[in-house]
């Protein structure tokens, strides 16, 4: 018996230039904020951009971007709506604001289902907000999407960086490209993370400050793009 869904995934992804999985070793480092802000930045520069929230049990990019009242269109599959210039896809269209408790096999199934029904058409960039860590979603994307690349987010904390080290080592072992590391929520001038990133053999893309204004800007993309956090994430765009 063969699961036919996986046969269409590469066909669905054919029109996409770059697929960037924004990932982290652990939660709470600002990965969704980086993913959403990066998608906004690329869209503002005139690129065709998609944002795919794959953090099924804790989706949050729709809150960051203030997305509500839209639904995908049914047209020989599912066509994501365009919001703030971004083709936006998330499980929230189907789960609403309710809790979606999923075990590993369910995460895999939901991921395969969404990858095989979503019609992105032509995109320059598809930014994926990943669930943290090296669990089912990460392993499935590596297995199913041929040209995936990872952008890894950390904080200055050694606890966060230790989990990043594991994630990056795994990706390197599997020969999956790592575009680089973003150090988020920086509160001092230490360059420890920069040095450790260099030791890992990975590019240090940007450091973004701990910025209390970001919380005030949640749900408001204009405000968000004017924060010092977003200005730093803008520096990532030309490097990718």
């Amino acid at each position: 018996m063969v699961d036919p869904r996986t046969s269409t995934i590469n066909e669905r992804m054919r029109g996409i230039g770059r697929i960037i999985a924004v990932s982290s070793g652990k939660g709470g480092v600002g990965k969704s904020l980086v993913a959403a802000t990066l998608a906004l930045t690329l869209a503002k520069k005139g690129y065709k951009v998609g944002l795919f929230d794959l953090d099924f049990t804790s989706p949050s990019t729709h809150i960051i971007l203030g997305i509500e009242g839209v639904q995908p269109k049914e047209e020989k599959g599912i066509v994501p709506p365009i919001v703030h210039g971004i083709k936006y896809m998330s499980i929230i269209y189907y789960s609403g604001e309710y809790a979606t408790p999923l075990r590993g096999a369910d995460v895999s199934n939901a991921l395969i289902e969404l990858l095989s029904i979503t019609r992105w058409d032509k995109l320059d960039f598809l930014v994926i907000d990943m669930p943290p860590g090296i669990g089912d979603a990460t392993l499935d994307l590596i297995r199913l999407i041929k040209n995936i690349e990872f952008l890894v987010v950390t904080t200055p904390s050694q606890l966060a960086f230790e989990t990043v080290r594991k994630l990056v080592s795994l990706l390197k072992e599997l020969k999956i490209p790592v575009m680089g590391i973003v150090e988020n929520m920086k509160m001092n001038k230490s360059n420890v993370i920069q040095e450790q990133t260099r030791k890992l053999g990975v590019k240090f893309l940007a450091e973004s400050p701990y910025d209390p204004e970001v919380e005030e800007a949640i749900g408001n993309t204009n405000k968000l793009q004017n924060t010092s956090f977003a200005k730093k994430i803008e520096e990532v765009a030309p490097q990718i």
Binding site: I78, Y94, S95, D106, V107, A110, E113, L114
Partner: peptide, 23 residues
């Protein structure tokens, strides 16, 4: 319709009829 598109969201809406768990 939501379950039709992504059957895993059954875990969002369906609970065990005996004990109420979504697991």
């Amino acid at each position: 319709e939501a379950i039709h598109f992504v059957p895993e969201v059954a875990h969002t809406y369906i609970k065990c009829p005996k004990c109420g768990s979504p697991d």
